[in-house]
């Protein structure tokens, strides 16, 4: 309808507006578009932008996901640093959380990878994996500095088997 109105006035001028003549049919019809507005043109432009962006967006979003664990590393490190080297409930809980979160993420890595698409998928997967590993590493480092890792000989002492007696000897002071 709007197009027909424009066509009618085309021969006069492009910018004139006729408010007077309006048939009943015209009145019931939709309002014409405001000048300078060409719905068709606008629609076409958005469509093209949307198509080009979606691929980039996927990559971006995937990167967000992939970099998530890495981004947590500084915060975790700060937390761990602030926790101090004494063994108490909060540091332990913190480390536990870091470990559990990262390990859980590593175990559900397949689901996370399903969400990662696009050209960069391979590198993103690697980054995601590395990020989680680094988080685990941070937690383990903290465990180590807390002395919770069985890395010393003393930690395995309880499992040391007693030595087997080979020779038997007896005697004492003479009874004579």
């Amino acid at each position: 309808m709007a197009n027909s109105t424009v066509k009618l006035d085309e021969n006069i001028t492009k910018w004139t507006l006729d408010f007077s003549s309006k048939t009943k049919a015209e009145k019931s019809a939709e309002l014409s578009s405001p000048p300078g507005y060409f719905p068709s043109i606008g629609n076409n432009q958005i469509e093209t932008i949307r198509e080009a962006d979606s691929a980039r967006l996927i990559i971006k979003k995937s990167w967000d996901l992939a970099l998530g664990p890495i981004k947590q590393v500084p915060m975790n490190m700060f937390l761990v640093y602030m926790a101090g080297n004494s063994i108490s409930i909060f540091p332990i809980m913190m480390i536990g959380m870091i470990i559990i979160r990262s390990v859980k993420a590593l175990f559900t890595i397949q689901q996370a990878f399903k969400m990662i698409e696009g050209k960069h998928a391979a590198s993103q997967k690697i980054v995601y994996f590395i990020g989680n590993i680094v988080n685990v590493g941070v937690a383990l480092y903290k465990c180590q500095s807390l002395g919770l890792l069985p890395t010393h000989a003393s930690d395995w002492l309880a499992f040391a088997e007693p030595q087997i007696r080979v020779e038997y000897s007896g005697g004492g002071l003479s009874y004579l």
């Binding site: 020779e167 038997y168 000897s169 002071l173 003479s174």
Partner: peptide
């Protein structure tokens, strides 16, 4: 059976 690994000592005070 155990003689190869058996020893005895006697102390004379």
């Amino acid at each position: 059976d155990i003689t190869p690994n058996l020893y005895v000592h006697v102390a004379e005070a």
